[in-house]
């Protein structure tokens, strides 16, 4: 069994919010207070939370998509060309290297490689599959609630608690151990 990653000397705070706006505001306040490594949880891809609350911008997944698609197209062309030259056999009076016909193979390979490398890019960047124990999680976050998880050293614990409490969480849980999530 893989263990959860502990953040040494930190305690964890999980605040469960019933409202979207209070979650966004809590995230903004945390960022303003200088917290960088905190997590927000949502039951849907909420753009306001990601863009306004957490100032997320581009995702490196797009590089994987582009690189995969280009590798695929090149592979498709290279493979068809190489195999026709490897065993030169004229069929139907067509040139050995029939580029228009090979476009179809190159196209399909571009899509296939592009899609698979997008998935790899997603898995690497989003840390999936993640079979570590579900610490710092609340099942309501896949239902109708939002959540925020912050870790803080003992000196800042009170301040974090106060900051989160300001946004009226439905539940504020304090774990003696903080985790990297």
């Amino acid at each position: 069994m893989i263990g959860a990653r502990r953040r040494q000397g930190h305690s964890g705070f999980f605040a469960l919010f019933e409202h979207l706006d209070s979650t966004i505001d809590a995230c903004k306040a945390l960022r303003k207070a200088g917290h960088k490594r905190f997590r927000a949880y949502a039951p849907l891809p909420e753009h306001h939370l990601l863009e306004e609350g957490l100032a997320k911008k581009h995702s490196p997944v797009r590089v994987f998509t582009l690189a995969g698609a280009m590798t695929g197209a090149a592979t498709g062309f290279a493979f068809t060309t190489w195999t026709s030259l490897d065993w030169p056999l004229i069929t139907g009076g067509k040139p050995l290297m029939s580029i228009p016909a090979y476009v179809v193979i190159a196209f399909e390979c571009a899509i296939l490689f592009g899609a698979l490398s997008t998935v790899i890019g997603l898995f690497i960047n989003a840390g999936l599959p993640n079979f570590r124990p579900m610490v710092a999680y609340h099942p309501a976050c896949s239902d109708g609630s939002f959540g925020v998880y912050v870790t803080a050293p003992p000196a800042e614990a009170e301040a974090v608690k106060e900051l989160l409490g300001e946004f009226e969480p439905a539940e504020l849980r304090e774990d003696p151990e903080g985790f990297d999530v």
């Binding site: 997590r39 927000a40 949880y41 949502a42 039951p43 891809p45 909420e46 753009h47 939370l49 990601l50 957490l54 997320k56 581009h58 995702s59 997944v61 797009r62 998509t65 997008t118 998935v119 890019g121 997603l122 960047n125 989003a126 840390g127 999936l128 599959p129 993640n130 079979f131 570590r132 579900m134 999680y137 976050c141 896949s142 999530v181």
Partner: peptide
Amino acid sequence: LGWRGTDREWHHFSKA
């Protein structure tokens, strides 16, 4: 796959 709905997951997921 141990999906938790974190901002990190959603961000890359929606782009992917």
